[in-house]
């Protein structure tokens, strides 16, 4: 089978995943809505996953792809728990703006 990397170079994957990661990071820092932040985190996670898969192919080593499956499974679990928490917060506060969650200040 023709290697996809011969058509699109590895550096492009790196650029894309960096871009995605930055989008996610800025989303986390900039947005105050917890759900949007959650999505941003997912984007960051997927940026990393993309990179892992790309490098896995680059090195002809399946371990990276296996690892991505793990991280996707974990991310799914995390989203399940995280959304549950958000629902609980919403029930208590009637919004999910993180600026209203300041009870833990020192």
């Amino acid at each position: 089978m023709e290697n996809i990397l011969q058509q699109i170079g590895i550096e492009n994957y790196i650029y894309l995943s960096t871009l995605l990661f930055c989008v996610g990071a800025f989303g986390v820092l900039y947005r105050r809505n917890a759900i949007v932040m959650f999505m941003s985190i997912e984007i960051m996670l997927n940026a990393v996953n993309l990179l892992l898969v790309a490098f896995s192919t680059y090195h002809q080593d399946a371990a990276g792809q296996v690892f991505v499956f793990f991280s996707m499974a974990v991310a799914a679990a995390e989203v399940a728990v995280g959304l549950a928490i958000l629902v609980a917060i919403y029930r208590n506060l009637n919004n999910i703006d993180i600026d209203s969650l300041k009870k833990l200040k020192g």
């Binding site: 990071a25 986390v28 820092l29 105050r32 993180i98 600026d99 969650l101 300041k102 009870k103 833990l104 200040k105 020192g106």
Partner: peptide, 18 residues
């Protein structure tokens, strides 16, 4: 003094983290 750093704002924490 140190405890004012811990202001409870998640955004601030994330910013410091990044």
């Amino acid at each position: 003094e140190g405890k004012t750093l811990q202001n409870g704002s998640i955004g601030f924490y994330l910013f410091a983290f990044v």
